[in-house]
């Protein structure tokens, strides 16, 4: 299978190409507010590095978050439209699961751990995993200090650890999800694949208007 993978759930805009499970291209650029500008050129470069044309692809893997909404949607709409126009499937992967797979496959940790990323507004996105990388809880959105004591004292991967270093005792790299590992989730753990519904975890900010505003004193 020739698989294009990308993720826009964090400040890293990352795209990779896997052919028969082997990573043939892996491109990452950083731009917390530039997903719309950077994603398409990053994908184009990854395809070029792998020597593939879009029409050669058999599938697309995309990170469904959780992550800041605006950037997250850039990845999801790109995946859906590319899949539609190429007539191939789009696979959703929880972006935190991709970090977890990297942790386990690269043996970065030999015990239960957490993946904690930036949810802005002084909160984090968090999921916990067993030593084999199976997700135990989450993903949730909450202030870092509200995570359980066990989670905060155990190994923590993802940018959230560095952002709220006072709350954690064992902060480790990687900070950002990599598209190569996102693609490997699809190849190695098809049971973890979802559709491309975004993991927003928060409702839109909006207040219903109860009554009209008066312009003259009541």
């Amino acid at each position: 299978m020739k698989l294009l993978a990308f993720d826009t759930s964090s400040a890293a805009i990352t795209a990779a190409v896997l052919i028969a499970g082997e990573i043939r291209a892996d491109v990452t650029r950083i731009g917390a507010t530039s997903h719309g500008e950077l994603l398409a050129p990053t994908i184009a470069q990854a395809l070029n590095d792998a020597g593939l044309a879009p029409g050669d692809l058999d599938g697309i893997a995309v990170g469904v978050g959780p992550g800041p909404f605006t950037g997250l949607r850039v990845g999801l709409v790109t995946a859906r439209v590319m899949a539609e126009s190429l007539g191939i499937p789009a696979y959703g992967v929880c972006s935190l699961d991709a970090i977890a797979l990297q942790v386990v496959d690269e043996a970065l940790c030999d015990q239960a751990f957490a993946v904690v990323t930036d949810a802005r507004r002084r909160e984090v996105y968090a999921a916990t995993y067993d030593a084999a990388g199976l997700r135990l809880t989450g993903p949730d959105v909450l202030p870092a200090r509200e995570l359980s004591a066990a989670t905060r004292q155990g190994p923590v991967f993802g940018i959230g650890g560095a952002l709220y270093a006072d709350e954690f005792t064992d902060v480790r790299a990687p900070e950002f999800v990599s598209a190569a590992w996102l693609g490997r989730v699809v190849v190695e753990h098809p049971d973890r694949v979802t559709d491309t519904t975004p993991l927003y975890l928060r409702r839109p900010d909006a207040v219903e208007n109860a009554s009209r505003k008066r312009v003259t004193p009541a």
């Binding site: 997903h35 719309g36 994603l39 398409a40 790109t78 859906r80 439209v81 590319m82």
Partner: peptide
Amino acid sequence: LVGVAAAKALALSL
């Protein structure tokens, strides 16, 4: 941004 990303995806694919 949703429309712009969709348009770029189409341009890239096609």
